[in-house]
């Protein structure tokens, strides 16, 4: 709880900074131009540095987790995906892991039940974490792709297609409290928000997950929720001049930044929070986006008996060889009727 609250305070601060700064012309430049550029640079440098740093570490042994039948006798059906013995198998395994969260799909939850024979442990299917994670990541992807419309001119058809499907379901609602209609609701934004809240809720209400959660676990979730909320509010409640926004983002993308005049502070909040997130990635667990590709228990073939894997730092070790052994035990060996090399 403490971690949650500290992180929440940090998010609140990050929200308020641009809210106040947006009223000062110089700070506008900072938030709309300098910080985004800095964020991108920090992100790219940090990301590349981290991955290169990982790649510098050796992979001495081939230790894939084998979650299926090995390749052995020809009449036994081997599982080339969960226990891949070919490169293609590894590629499929990695695709399933990255695109379908294969391992998380197996998730179960342990419970204790009373039966007529006493207490019994059960490992029931737990699919909600998988569903939440899939919804979260895929909607995040769609949201990112949608935002390409601000950075590309002309906007390519594929981006428009993503937008079309995202906004397919029309939500029109008019009431005295609030109205939603135009611009249309984008499903990805809402689902992203819902999934992030679900993931955050797990951290708060699932005792085990709460116990293991650090500030570094609350912060990115809360930051993403804040980004989603600021985005949704900007789209539906506190409208800004989109052309002005796009002029700014296009300016950033073409290295000729302009600061828009007619854009409310909600936009500065949004872009500031996004910059913070982008900047934060290389220093945090969010690097799992790259790390998942490099995990040696998943991305190696399980063919170590078929092909020898080389350990780059393999070194000689002191061993106890047979001659030393026979020297020590020659007499007992002879007495036991065992053959010895030296009489």
């Amino acid at each position: 709880m403490k971690n949650f609250l500290i992180s929440l305070v940090a998010i609140a601060a990050l929200w308020l900074i641009p809210y106040f700064a947006a009223n000062v012309a110089v700070l506008k430049l900072l938030i709309a131009v300098i910080i985004p550029y800095a964020a991108v640079v920090i992100f790219l440098v940090g990301f590349i540095y981290k991955v290169i740093d990982w790649s510098k570490s050796a992979v001495p042994f081939r230790i894939p987790t084998t979650a299926g039948q090995q390749k052995s006798l020809p009449w036994i059906k081997a599982n080339n995906i969960d226990n891949p013995f070919t490169k293609m198998g590894v590629i499929i395994r990695m695709l399933l892991e990255v695109l379908a969260f294969r391992s998380l799909f197996r998730n179960t939850t342990m419970s204790v039940s009373e039966t007529e024979h006493g207490k019994r442990l059960a490992y029931k299917t737990e699919i909600f974490l998988w569903i939440g994670a899939m919804a979260f990541h895929y909607c995040f992807l769609v949201v990112v792709l949608r935002h390409l419309r601000f950075f590309l001119d002309p906007v390519p058809a594929c981006v428009q297609l993503v937008e079309f499907f995202d906004g397919l379901m029309r939500v029109e609602f008019f009431s005295s409290v609030f109205s939603i209609g135009l611009p249309g609701i984008m499903m990805s934004g809402l689902i992203l928000l819902a999934a992030a809240i679900f993931l955050l809720g797990r951290r708060l209400f699932n005792a085990k997950v709460k116990y293991i959660s650090l500030m570094a676990d609350y912060f990115p979730l809360q930051l993403i929720i804040a980004i989603a909320i600021s985005g949704i509010f900007m789209r539906h409640f506190f409208k800004v001049d989109l052309t002005a926004v796009k002029q700014l983002s296009m300016g950033l993308a073409t290295f000729s930044p302009v600061i828009p005049t007619n854009v409310g502070s909600i936009f500065y909040i949004h872009i500031f929070l996004v910059s913070m997130l982008v900047m934060y990635i290389p220093f945090s667990k969010l690097m799992h986006m790259a790390g998942v590709f490099l995990s040696p228990t998943r991305n190696l073939t399980a063919d170590t008996r078929m092909n020898r894997h080389i350990n780059p730092w393999n070194h000689d070790v002191k061993t106890h060889n047979y001659d030393e052994y026979e020297d020590e035990f020659r007499e007992v060996m002879k007495n036991a009727g065992l053959r010895v090399e030296k009489e």
């Binding site: 981290k50 799992h288 040696p296």
Partner: peptide, 16 residues
């Protein structure tokens, strides 16, 4: 010496 260690130290998201 062990990429496993470095990656495993870095990327856990504590999903539980």
């Amino acid at each position: 010496k062990f990429r496993t260690l470095k990656i495993f130290m870095d990327i856990c998201v504590r999903c539980g």
